[in-house]
Design a protein around this nucleic acid. Structure first.
Lengths: 182, 182, 182, 182
DNA sequence: TATGAATGAGTCTTCATTCAT
DNA sequence: CATGAATGAAGACTCATTCAT
């Protein structure tokens, strides 16, 4: 019962290190580097994630899940329109989550759809609810659905990569927000 | 007839093949594949582009240049506002150029700024002119500059990767276009 | 009931699983597979057999011992000549024991002589007795000794690997049996 | 036209080194060792034989081919019965070719039938002819076919592995030869 | 100049073995 | 004693780059 505790902790350390490494060095960073940063042996990485592709998928799922739970949390907000806008704000602003969604869905090499499948529905669901509420509240145009929202989130997150300073960020964001208005 | 002619033709073939290969297989496609599709030996590829990084840079420059000249051509349009919108339409629509700009600027591995430098100003200039005219004509909001426009172009091109069908494409595009209105 | 009882049972389970695994997957099957089939943890396998080489040696000894006791049992037969022939028949026929002897002595990687030493004499003794009786009874040519008999047993067991159907098996076997006649 | 010459020479060197290495260290000897002995870089080995399995197959084919051409050469002998016996003598005697056939067909890991297919028929054909002539000449029993002959060749080559001195070799061989008589 | 064979550093992955629980 | 997670050395294979022809 207790050896499992260590194993779980290691899995977490590896996942965190992988997220960091892939964000910093790109998805073709060597797996050794992940092990090094996690402070474990290379064998441990492969014990928890038998393929590099699997490790990448896990990292992306985790990132997606974060976006999903953020969306879910926001869906309970009393001002869903404002909350929906905030989702974009966060994606374009948070340098950690930044390329998260975009990279997660765009990432070359792994068959995105299959790898992401488990979380995909979860995230889509959360965004769908938030979007519906925001539209109902009159804060977001009614002619877009979840798929368009997701595409736009990807666009926003990628656009943010090119954004340099804060005022520029604000101006870029406004285009998205104004475009989303009814 | 001059020996140079062949060399130039080869350089062109290689560049075209590389553009195709990197678009299809991703930027870490093997250089051999480029040679194969260009119908030349590996040696020839490396003669013209001594590093893979250099080859990638050349491909990206070429892609950027295409966007630049499209922008330049549009700047002479009698309806610059419409032309500016059309730039986005093309980026989100043309599956060939699609990820071009985005990938060109985002591409991991090569130091973007340095590699792109030669064309950067050219493209920026062309877009700046088109944007200014479009704003002057009252077709585009006045609070954004070239940098924001470029960031948005990147966002649009990346968003398009997630777009599946045509009607979805239109709805996604509308958000960008409406957001750009004054 | 004694703690030793469990240990002995485990040793047996491991040995049986190893015999099965190495027969099926070859001698470079992973030790994990042995543990899995034995229904024990890897640690247990290594507790009983500190090296893979040791485990292999144990398996081979066991197989040899089986051949040895078969030979010993047959030596008491009232028709030793017939019994000696039967030894070949079994080796070429029994798909379980089939490559046993051959593999046991041929097996790459472990130093055969040293690993097998403990049982070697035992087996040689049993075969020697059976052979002597068979020769005495006039059923086997007199110009071969134990070493030749063993070499021929190996040959027969390996030849059987190439044998496909039953009638072919019989025809191949006859060559050995006729060759052994005085 | 000339660069090919070097390539062919290298292919040959690699194949020779591989035959040597696999004979000496077994089929799971590291590929690096083959490269080292061939005096080439590891990349060269893989350029000529893209998989280790492929390299092994090539080695085995080569070995088989040698047996095949030996059989073919013998088929033209004026005394085919004697020639057939000589085939066994060579297999049990030549320490270089020794385990050749046996290992070639037995080798764990690679799917023997498929890898060997190209040469299989060639070798079978050569042996079939020699066998038929030997039988016709009354030197070999009539109730065996090619398949049995091959199985016996395998048996003989493996038996030879256990043979220590020359007189023992002769005695073992006699069993095969006498067994093959009509 | 073009060619493509050669090179070897770098990557992923496996597996025997150890050791904390 | 048993367990199975951790370890890291070793092996197969890839690919950017060089260079003899």
């Amino acid at each position: 019962m207790s050896p499992r505790a260590d194993a779980v902790r290691n899995r977490t350390k590896v996942l965190a290190a992988a997220d960091e490494v892939f964000a910093e060095l790109g998805t073709d960073a060597p797996t050794d580097e992940v092990a090094r940063r996690a402070g474990v042996g290379i064998g441990t990485v492969f014990r928890h994630f038998p393929t590099k592709e699997g490790l990448l998928a896990a990292v992306f799922q985790e990132r997606l899940r974060q976006v999903g739970s953020e969306a879910a949390a926001m869906a309970t907000s009393e001002d869903p329109a404002e909350a929906f806008h905030e989702l974009f704000t966060k994606l374009i602003g948070n340098s950690r989550t930044k390329q998260a969604l975009g990279e997660a869905l765009t990432a070359a090499g792994i068959d995105v759809d299959d790898a992401i499948a488990p979380v995909r529905d979860e995230v889509r669901g959360a965004i769908a609810i938030l979007l519906a509420k925001a539209q109902e509240a009159g804060g977001v145009r009614g002619d877009i659905g979840v798929d368009e929202a997701i595409a736009l989130l990807i666009g926003a997150s990628q656009a943010s990569a090119a954004v340099i300073d804060i005022s520029m960020r604000a101006r870029t964001l406004n285009v998205f927000l104004d475009g989303l208005r009814p």
